[in-house]
Amino acid sequence: MTRAILCAAVLSIAGLGLAPSAVAERPYANCSEARADGRTDIPESDPAYWPGGDRDQDGYACDS
């Protein structure tokens, strides 16, 4: 019984490693939303950055 529970636990944990990772969505649909949240000049290193918000391609989305 204990062996069966242990095997089930190991398989469950191993299965988690095989699950596809979720794709992170950006927090803002556009720069108007970002500005309403007080965000401007969002750098490429920030998870909120997206290339569509960086019109001049200087590495910052939603320029102030």
Rank of each mutant, 00 (worst) to 15 (best):
T40D: 14
G38K: 03
L11M: 15
A29D: 01
A61M: 12
A4H: 01
D54H: 00
A8P: 00
P27N: 11
P27G: 12
C31G: 07
I13R: 06
C62F: 04
D37V: 01
W50E: 12
A24L: 10
T40V: 15
P20R: 12
N30D: 15
R35C: 02
G59V: 07
A24G: 06
I5Y: 05
V23A: 15
Y49W: 09
Y60T: 11
D37M: 04
Y28R: 08
R39F: 01
A22W: 04
D56T: 05
C7R: 07
Y28L: 11
L16F: 11
S64N: 13
S45T: 06
Y28T: 10
R35N: 07
S64Y: 04
G38V: 06
P47R: 14
D58F: 03
A4I: 09
V23Y: 05
M1A: 03
L18Y: 04
L18N: 05
R3T: 07
A9D: 02
P20D: 12
V23R: 11
A61G: 14
A61S: 14
R26P: 01
L16I: 13
G52D: 15
R3M: 07
P43R: 09
C62M: 08
R35Q: 11
G17F: 10
L18I: 09
A4M: 02
A48E: 11
D63E: 14
G53A: 15
D56M: 03
P43H: 05
W50P: 00
A14V: 15
A8H: 01
C62I: 06
W50V: 10
R3P: 00
A29K: 02
I42E: 09
A9S: 12
A29M: 00
E44P: 00
L18E: 07
P27K: 11
A48P: 00
C7I: 14
R39C: 02
Y60N: 14
T40L: 09
R55S: 13
S64L: 11
P43Q: 06
S21N: 09
G59C: 06
I13M: 14
I42V: 13
D54V: 02
L6R: 02
R26K: 14
A34Y: 01
A19N: 02
P51G: 05
A4Y: 03
D54P: 00
D56V: 03
N30I: 07
Y28P: 03
A4L: 12
Y28A: 15
C62E: 07
A29F: 00
S64K: 09
A14H: 08
G15F: 08
D54T: 02
A36R: 11
L6G: 02
C31V: 10
S21Q: 13
G53S: 15
P47E: 15
I42W: 06
A24R: 11
V10S: 14
G15V: 08
E44S: 13
A48M: 06
T40P: 00
G15E: 11
E33F: 01
S21L: 13
D63R: 09
S64M: 09
A48D: 14
I13H: 03
S64H: 09
A29C: 01
G53M: 12
Y28D: 13
A4C: 01
P20M: 11
W50Y: 08
Q57A: 13
C7E: 10
E25I: 09
R3K: 03
L11V: 14
P20K: 08
R3N: 05
L11Y: 08
A34S: 04
G52T: 11
D41A: 13
G15A: 15
E33P: 00
Y49F: 11
